[in-house]
Design a protein around this nucleic acid. Sequence first.
DNA 1: CGTAGCCTTGAAGGTGATCAATGTTTGTGG
DNA 2: CCACAAACATTGATCACCTTCAAGGCTACG
Lengths: 234, 234
Amino acid sequence: MESPRGTFAINELPIFQGLESAKILNLIQGGVAVSYKHRQALFRAGDEAAHFFLLLSGACKLYRHDLTGKETIVHFASPGDPIAGLVMMKPGSLYPVSAGSIGRSMALRLPRETWVREWASNALLQQRISQSIFDRMNRMQDEKALQRHPLAVRVAALLVTLLDRYSSESDTILPIPITRQEIADSVGSTVESVIRLMSDWSQAGILNSESRQIEVLRLDELVAISRGQDGASS
Amino acid sequence: MESPRGTFAINELPIFQGLESAKILNLIQGGVAVSYKHRQALFRAGDEAAHFFLLLSGACKLYRHDLTGKETIVHFASPGDPIAGLVMMKPGSLYPVSAGSIGRSMALRLPRETWVREWASNALLQQRISQSIFDRMNRMQDEKALQRHPLAVRVAALLVTLLDRYSSESDTILPIPITRQEIADSVGSTVESVIRLMSDWSQAGILNSESRQIEVLRLDELVAISRGQDGASS
DNA sequence: CGTAGCCTTGAAGGTGATCAATGTTTGTGG
DNA sequence: CCACAAACATTGATCACCTTCAAGGCTACG
């Protein structure tokens, strides 16, 4: 199994693994590799779903706004992830969520026609898309099961997951400029609460978050907290 | 578009719509229509995923247990829904959730071999499965966006959704024996809180929940509450 | 050097969790 | 058909966790 971290060249994408270059060329017809700046949108909820994406590098959040205008992050995409694949199935659909880059990122943007012509009838690709969706759904279900646990558990679990998904092997620094607001929007809480929590953790030597990036100093502690085993062992 | 409510004969299943009977016979090879009693399990999380299911009638909850043993309901399946389709993709996978019947229900249980042989390579079916997954994922995302709203909003939204999905056209009675515990397990709360809420609503004439079934008397109110517009208009 | 985005801290208050006890209905076996 | 158990519903008291509101500080960057 290939590591999902880091940066991918187009023909190195896990989703294309084992395919011949000629076949891949067909699959990316009409595709453009687009570079996105921090906070730039890939697409917005409600827009007609004209493209789907393969994230090549960086990070991307999928989010929507609730009735009161507050943002809820429903998913963090990491390099190699297909984005907006499912919504290609039906013609004329609208994107159900918005997508925005976190930090700089690159994505391969493909037109829906390519999906219809090349992807929809390709069993192997459908299978790999399904696998990706399966993983994503499992992650959402994990999160839902954490809903009733205290905030500390949810934030710790998120950080552990993000570190696992975005950092290379043994690195302990989250390479994406994620804000406390975004953490709050993801776990369903408020900035202030997340800040208080992470300040405590900084003081306890679990995190180091100077210089606007998050470094995990004691992953074991964080994992323990995410399991509800409480970090009362300072 | 066919209504997803009610009861389906096998060859009336929306997922088979437009297919010839002979083709359908191939697709359900090795299948058995199984009748489930209230609270009976279709499968358990952690079991090897040897079957997938098409719910013919009744209702079914997908749930898992968290660290502390508490149940979290991640999805309610309604007639016509494919269950455990995604997990068929990879050989040797384990079910990520448990599934149990709510009230009496019927399901068509199909072996994984049939999936592999007949379903995996069928673009139309893959497309319809994907559509179903897409809907389910959207619903989960909707719920996640409600996470920070008061309990009343989440319960009202759940009831409105369930009524829409399980009741026939203009009926206002939820035809499945869903308990307050299950409502709590779905919205991420506790029985007591749900009971207090629903008692208030009963007194306000919004619900009637004598005789162990839930009747919605004022759907408009419920919808208003689910939108956070507060039902202070008694 | 001023603005924008992000982080921080404090005080006050509410929503909902928890614990404990009890009532009610349903189902099952004798 | 009754009796008992199991599942489900209810009510009250208490209190912790987290939200909300308000104010202010820090850092980057044009």
